[in-house]
Each structure stands twice: as C-alpha cells, then as structure tokens.
C-alpha cells in the first residue's frame, strides 16, 4: 500500500526552480531516505511534504488524500514532523514537551486520559527517555534532547514520520541508537521519510533512497542502485571509492595525497 505519493511536484523561490518535477512513492513500513548535496533541495522537499510550504505544481497524496484537503489537527494525527531547528527557549520539563504530542487528539482544555498516558509511556520507553521525564528540556544533552523530540513525534501516533537530519548533531553512538530505533519502528508498521547527508548512514539503514540533484530526481532505488561510483561522481562531483563487499554499499573518501 502506498502511504505517500508525490506527483510532478515543483517549487520555485525567486524564480529559481528549487524542486523540479519530482515523482516518487513510499509504501507502508518503508524507511525512505532523501539524500543529495547541499542546496539540492532536500530540506525544501521535506517542507513541501510537511505541508508548511506549498508547491506551485503537482500533488502530494498522503493515504490517498491530497495534503491540502486535510484539516490541521487531522493532518497532525497522520503526519508527524521533526524539523531540524529545535531551539526551545522555555523551561518546560521533558514530560510536558512529550505530552504536547497528544495535542492533535485533545480538545481545548481536555486533560490527558489514561489511554494518552499509555501512549506517552510507550514513547518514553522506546526512546529510552523515561529517566529524563522530570528534567528540564534545556538541562539535558543534545543526544537526549533529540530522543525526547522523537518521543514527542511518536506520541502523535502518525502513520508517516518525516525527519530532517535527525542525527546531524549527534555522536556516533546516538546516531546508531536513533537509527536502530527508526528501523524498529518501520518493522512495526510506521512509515518514515528521512533527509540525510551522511551517505553511509543512509546506505546502512534506509530501504530505498532518493538521490536529489539541483531539485531533480537523479536516482531512486535500493542503496545498491543509488550509492554507486558514477552517481556520486555525477551529483557530488568528487571521486570516491564504493566498497560493495558488505551488506550495503559503503562510501570511502579518496584523498589526493595518498
């Protein structure tokens, strides 16, 4: 079943095409990666999928319904987004932040129910953040904070999860932890679209990849089809080695003074 379907999507800014006739489908339970060099339009594409900016052309169908047809709260029940900038200038506790993920299910002033509490506890457990629940959001480390924000997104119980560089500021141990968790979520039926710049993380964990170049789709497919010597040279304009001896292709940098 297709969760997400993008048809002929285009977007311009100041007359420059940022996204140019992009087409792809994501099916249920997939971990779908969007990769490409800086300025290729990755983050813009994710913003279009999040419905926070509108494309000038084309359609985005989420669960067979056009994005703009959703009411705000209804959309937040099927689509959770974790944006890149996560600055919070207020001393909320971790628990308060995660609880806000239930907002799409609550009326004004409706309290958190026992059922809501179960969902929250489950998300705290999955992200390994139970012990942080009573701490203030600005007193924890960057890795912990990213896990907390992921917990908030999980609490939305959305069919589709969009993540923009969820691990870019994290140490490798946290990167692994987050991606192991994402893999597990997709096995349980959640669909995830993630923007990444780390080609090897993308190759290791994503089921399929979309390689974006100057707003256009260069290649879509499984990592073996996308992470190739020619593709990387085409899009990034640099020479690399691709090691295909492992389970998934692995990109090695070639330095000139070797």
């Amino acid at each position: 079943m297709n969760i997400l379907e993008v048809k002929n999507l285009s977007f311009s800014y100041n007359k420059a095409k940022i996204i140019d006739d992009v087409n792809f489908k994501v099916s249920k339970g997939e971990l779908f990666g969007i990769i490409g060099p800086n300025g290729s339009g990755k983050s813009t594409l994710l913003k279009l999928l999040s419905n926070i900016i509108k494309g000038e052309d084309g359609d985005i169908f989420l669960l067979r319904k056009e994005l703009s047809q959703y009411r705000r709260k209804d959309l937040a029940r099927v689509l959770a987004v974790l944006p890149q900038s996560t600055e919070i200038g207020f001393e909320f506790s971790v628990k308060e932040i995660v609880e806000m993920g239930r907002h799409p299910y609550l009326e004004n002033w409706q309290g958190i129910s026992q059922a809501d509490k179960k969902v929250i506890d489950k998300a705290l457990k999955l992200t390994n953040t139970i012990s942080l629940a009573d701490k203030l959001i600005n007193s924890i480390s960057g890795g912990e904070r990213q896990r907390v924000l992921l917990a908030r997104a999980l609490v939305q119980e959305a069919e589709l999860l969009l993540l923009d560089e969820p691990t870019s500021a994290l140490d490798i141990n946290y990167q692994l932890e987050i991606f192991e968790l994402l893999s597990r979520l997709t096995r349980e039926g959640t669909t995830i679209v993630v923007v990444l710049h780390d080609l090897n993380l993308a190759s290791q964990y994503c089921d399929r990849l979309l390689l974006l170049n100057q707003g256009k789709v260069n290649t879509i497919g499984i990592p073996d089809e996308v992470i190739t010597l020619n593709n990387i040279k085409d899009v990034y304009g640099c020479d690399v080695e691709v090691d295909n001896s492992g389970r998934r292709p692995y990109v090695k940098l070639v330095t000139s003074n070797e």
Binding site: I52, R72, L75, V81, P83, S85, I88, M100
Partner: peptide, 23 residues
Amino acid sequence: YFLADNLNILLLGEETAYYLGVE
C-alpha cells in the same frame, strides 16, 4: 485562558506548533 494549551505549544516555535496541529 481558553487558548492556554495553544500558547504553551506556540512557545516551541511556530513551525513545531504547526506540526502539532495548532492553527
């Protein structure tokens, strides 16, 4: 006062508030 919850979520930033279903 009726909008107290929305005001809390707005403190997380407008983009995040939008993703959490706040108009």
